[in-house]
Write a protein that binds this DNA or RNA. Structure first.
Lengths: 180, 180
DNA sequence: GTCTATAAAAAGATAGAC
DNA sequence: GTCTATCTTTTTATAGAC
């Protein structure tokens, strides 16, 4: 776990920022290098290819997500409340990294999709012990996803598993009961 | 409202499919033309430019979204339940169009972002009369967003307004009360 | 480690034949 | 209405100097 070179981190930061602010198409190696204050050759010294850049970003996400879960587990407010609160996108390193990786996922990166699924499973496993039942767990996760995605004006959220018919009915009933 | 040419609709369908399946970057005019079974020149007869293609897709979304709201208003199941059920992405024309337009929005298209916001406002206005209060309304919309986005394996949902601090607290309390 | 220069492919768009 | 051919710009990647 030796600290990575500064230029390398700067490139990753710039890549993230462009992905989130302007989208995947704008996040070219040229634009990333310029935003990071290095030349294209300099960038390619640290990342041999575009996919190497993407892989590095995915790796960064995995580390940040695990840290997030660990912090929430120790929150005095309670895991559910802390999780929902943390779903309010505030521009934290984890927030922007999730958004950046989801941009990659939506452009066909299987590694990015898989990573986002793992993050969601981390959350799910963390929340399970603190919710009444599976329906309640799904409701928390759904509201969390909705929150996350709504916390930014023109951004999106992250992938997850589909819901079966019976679960969907139970969920609808619960939400209807709680809201009408 | 005369019926548009078949080739034109085929191009729009192909563009939508590629956007949803492979992302914005893959949705080139070349690939779209090929998938629609026309040449690049043929495509450019119907849509003078890439942005003309995008504008046509946004227009299609507006029409489909209004139809959806009209149907839900007349649902015997009730507006809230029908809305949540309809948020389960089933690959309907509206579903795929929303996803396609959200891909454009995430790549910097202001027109696409604005259109998605309008769709969400349509839903919000439709649901308001059928929910207990503003917190309940937001909860329904959030769960709907979460549902929508989770109904597909590696896709995303749609933009919306941010939540204020007090609203967030009220929401967290409500969800916590309903789920723990 | 970082740079410039350049090659090779793909993108959007135009021109004009049919 | 639909096609092929072509131009221009952008993007990824390589080569090699410093």
């Amino acid at each position: 776990m030796s600290r990575p070179p500064l230029a390398r981190e700067a490139v990753l930061d710039a890549f993230t920022r462009i992905l989130v602010d302007d989208g995947e198409r704008a996040a070219t190696m040229d634009a990333t290098a310029r935003a990071a204050g290095v030349s294209k050759g300099g960038l390619l010294y640290h990342f041999n290819s575009k996919s190497a850049l993407e892989e590095a970003l995915v790796k960064r996400l995995e580390v940040l997500a695990q840290q997030d879960v660990d912090e929430i587990e120790n929150s005095p407010e309670g895991v559910v409340a802390a999780h929902l609160r943390s779903s309010q996108n505030t521009g934290s390193p984890l927030d922007v990294t999730i958004l950046a990786v989801s941009r990659l996922a939506q452009n066909g990166s299987d590694a990015a999709s898989a990573s986002l699924r793992r993050v969601r499973e981390l959350w799910e496993d963390s929340l399970r012990a603190h919710t009444r039942d599976e329906t309640a767990l799904q409701m928390v996760l759904l509201v969390s996803d909705g929150l996350y995605f709504n916390a930014v004006l023109d951004l999106n959220a992250l992938p997850g598993p589909t819901l079966e018919g019976t679960d969907l009915d139970a969920l609808i009933s619960a939400v209807v009961a709680a809201t009408t």
